[in-house]
Amino acid sequence: MRMRPSARIPGILAGLALAVGGAVFTAPAAHADMKACEQYVAQHDAKVTSGVAEACYQGQIGNQTSCTSSLTTAGASKDVAEQACEASR
């Protein structure tokens, strides 16, 4: 049994609307970003300023090792570096 094209279009549109609406509800929660990392460093190690943005960027793109290493090289404590890089994810 074949449906007329005019009868099929509303069904297709309804399916698309459900698919798009479902994607909105299943999207993961927003994660923190570079600014959260930079703010964490500023709040816990105010003396560290050089290289923080680049280190936090490395954390944001998933390179946690480089992020932590760069922040500790810039003078942040290991604990602060780890927490800040975690905030950038």
Rank of each mutant, 00 (worst) to 15 (best):
M1P: 09
R2W: 12
M3Y: 13
R4F: 10
R4Y: 10
R4S: 15
G11T: 08
I12R: 00
I12C: 02
L13D: 05
A14G: 14
L16P: 01
A17W: 06
L18H: 01
V20W: 08
V20L: 14
G21N: 04
A23L: 15
V24D: 01
T26E: 09
T26N: 09
A27K: 12
P28K: 10
P28R: 09
D33C: 02
K35A: 15
A36W: 00
A36C: 04
C37P: 10
Q39K: 13
Y40F: 15
Y40W: 12
V41N: 01
V41R: 03
V41E: 01
V41H: 02
V41M: 01
H44T: 11
H44G: 06
D45E: 14
D45H: 04
K47P: 03
K47N: 12
S50G: 14
S50W: 10
G51K: 00
G51I: 07
V52W: 05
Y57N: 13
Y57P: 03
Y57D: 12
Q58G: 07
G59V: 03
Q60N: 15
I61G: 07
I61V: 15
N63S: 13
Q64F: 08
Q64W: 00
S66K: 12
S66W: 04
C67W: 07
C67K: 04
C67L: 07
T68G: 01
T68L: 00
S69F: 07
L71Q: 00
T72C: 02
T72K: 08
T72W: 03
T72E: 08
T73C: 00
T73A: 13
A74K: 02
G75R: 07
G75F: 10
A76K: 01
A76W: 01
S77Y: 06
S77A: 08
D79E: 14
D79F: 09
V80R: 05
A81R: 04
A81C: 05
E82Q: 12
Q83L: 12
Q83W: 05
C85W: 09
E86C: 03
A87P: 06
A87W: 09
S88W: 06
S88F: 06
R89L: 10
